[in-house]
Simulated assay, not measured.
Amino acid sequence: MKQLRPALLGTAFSLTVLIGAATAQAAPVQNWVVSISNDWSNTSFTGGPFAVEPTDPFSVGDTLPDGSDPRNLTYDIISWGTPTTDAGRSFLAVDDTVTIGGLTTGSTQGVAGASFYHGNYRQATATAENPAERWLDNTTLDLTITLTPEGQDSAARTFTHSIPIDFMETRNTASVDDCAGAPWGSSTTACPDSLTVLDEAANFSFVFDDVSYVLSFVFDPANSLNVARIDSGEGASTVWTNEGVRSRLATRLLIRAADAGPAPVPEPGSLAIAAAGLAFLGFARLKRRA
């Protein structure tokens, strides 16, 4: 398994969208409206030899499985596991559709993008009458992205992209010192789960009116909740989510003309992120602890 170097929580993990060189000297579009629709596909689950497939794992709802509605949106949800809390089953979810205006070419702050949610809830002890459900192993996030110059509805461009996602549900141990990803601080009382991102996993390109653009989704810890830690290094980053709660993993969108030089770096003081790049557009597999 690839070794990941620790990073501060404020560090953005990033995947840069690579776009070819501009083919003309047309002026870049300055302001955009972006619509993103998300769907899950190619989902599989894993577990012990007596584990059973999750019951009705896929849903789309106006609330998350724990009853919360963090953004007043509709959510695409994958659920699994038999819970021991009132919060319900474990789940991974994403905003179904978001439409964002005010995205400015070259802005270092960008705009809020889609969010991901992980309900990290412990499963009940399995019995012959109540066998354990298998847990999420991997899935694919299929995105449909429509970019429209503000005030030019007829000029919209739509792109699709599929992102492989792999997930690690850790086993709890008698001591957090034995958890995957240790050492952990005193505030960690149970083993966090993790999501790992490969920086090169989601490259795609688009050209608008003969100008090439870089579109980036940036992980935004300032607006995320219940993230235990981020590890980053060697072209990959891992987000660890706290046990027994719902985590929110927020993103921001940035866009620049591909020939305008390096990607803009967001303001650390205002966004609490340290580098521009594409986040949550690809998850690399981590081996599960035995």
Rank of each mutant, 00 (worst) to 15 (best):
F116L: 07
G102V: 13
D137Y: 08
T108I: 12
L103W: 11
E150L: 13
L143V: 04
V111K: 08
T139L: 01
G106D: 13
E133I: 01
V98L: 13
L143D: 03
N120G: 02
Q152R: 11
A112C: 09
L143P: 00
A156W: 14
V98K: 08
T108V: 12
G88M: 07
I100A: 03
F91K: 10
G88T: 10
T99A: 12
T139D: 02
D86C: 04
Y117G: 00
E150G: 05
G151A: 10
D153G: 07
E133L: 02
N120C: 03
T99W: 13
I145S: 03
T127V: 02
R122Y: 15
D95A: 09
D96T: 15
A155I: 13
A126G: 05
A156K: 12
G110Q: 05
T148H: 02
A112W: 10
S154C: 10
S107D: 15
A93R: 02
F91W: 10
G113A: 11
A114S: 04
N130K: 00
E150C: 04
I145D: 01
F91R: 08
T99V: 13
Q152T: 09
I100V: 15
A124H: 03
I100F: 06
T127H: 02
L141Q: 05
W135H: 09
L103Y: 06
R122S: 10
T97G: 07
N120R: 01
D95Q: 08
D95C: 08
V98N: 05
D86I: 12
R122V: 15
E129I: 06
F116Q: 05
A132Q: 06
R134I: 10
P131V: 01
N120K: 00
T139P: 00
T140M: 09
A114G: 03
G102E: 15
T139Y: 00
W135T: 13
S107Q: 11
L136W: 13
A156V: 15
G101W: 11
R89F: 11
E150V: 15
G88P: 09
E133M: 02
Q109D: 14
T105M: 15
D142C: 00
R134G: 07
E129P: 00
G106S: 13
S115R: 01
V111D: 10
A132R: 03
A114W: 02
L103R: 06
L103K: 04
G88K: 07
N138M: 10
R134F: 04
R122F: 12
S115M: 01
H118I: 15
L143A: 06
Y117D: 02
G88A: 11
G113Y: 06
S107G: 10
D96S: 15
T99N: 06
A126R: 03
T97L: 11
G102P: 12
A112T: 14
S115T: 07
T97Y: 09
A155V: 14
V94H: 00
G101E: 15
S107M: 09
V94N: 01
T140P: 03
N120Q: 03
D86N: 12
A112Y: 10
D142G: 01
V94S: 01
G151F: 07
T97D: 11
A126Y: 03
T139M: 00
V111G: 03
R89L: 11
A126M: 04
F91G: 10
N138G: 05
D142W: 00
R134Y: 08
L103C: 09
Y121G: 06
S90D: 14
T144L: 08
E150F: 10
A87W: 02
E150D: 15
D153N: 07
F91D: 14
E133T: 05
I145H: 01
